[in-house]
Amino acid sequence: MEERSSKIAKWCLIGISVAFFLLMLIVPLFEVLYRALADGLEAYGTALGAKTTLSALKVTLLATVIAVVVNTVFGLIASWLVTKFDFRGKNVLSTLIDIPFSISPVIAGLAYIMTFGRTGWAKPLLDGINEALGTDIALVFSVPAVVLATIFVTFPFISREIIPLLYAQGRDEEEAAAMMGASGFTIFRKITFPHIRWGLLYGVILCAARAFGEFGAVYAVSKARGKTFTLPLEIDALYMAGSADSITQAFAVSSLLVGMALIMLILKNIVEYRGKRDDL
């Protein structure tokens, strides 16, 4: 009797989970594809090839790549500091790493404007740097602003993957290597890195996936369509354009994002699989 009722419970749970996923994920994704192709393949191709779409794609990719690189380096450093050393303020650093998770991205965007905008307190400093270097870098309403906002929002992803791995590894192997005269860099390269390799890759994928889809923070600091828009902003603009054509275009560009997300998902699964297999 008990076995049967637990079997029923099991199938109920599975059923609910499947229904949830279908409703919240699968159905909307299919809807996107369906609406994207509503006007036929040619219109789909035109939408993807439009100047504004390509510009948005370029900005999204640029922001993602830079965010991933910067966050990998700083994520590694921050994780290393937090796990290998004991210092005052270690807990503060640990909390700071997680801040982008807890605050709304829109607030991050607004904070950027408050800091680097024309009326921001850091503007004179930025002007000074610009004068000294002879450049014209703007940190709001520009592509650098988009990049910075993306970096901020995706920062914790890599640290969070690496920190548990570094903790689990402990200091023994590194001490053994240090005893034999290995330099810090050698220790990192030969002993630490192989251990965190898959976690790092996983974090990179998560970071990239998040960067693709960032809307709130970027929306606050990017206003020029065809110049500083990312794909999500471009989709919003197409949808707001209101005509039946532009809505189909909005879905077409959305399907592009969906495609990128699916690629990330597949990569993530591969990494997870390889990581488990190589788990030593």
């Binding site: 023994d172 192997e173 001490e175 053994a176 290597a177 005893m179 002993i191």
Partner: peptide, 16 residues
């Protein structure tokens, strides 16, 4: 690392 010492750790600490 410069004392000319070989050290065997309790849990071996082999480079896995």
């Amino acid at each position: 690392s410069e004392r000319g010492i070989g050290f065997v750790f309790q849990n071996y600490a082999l480079f896995r």
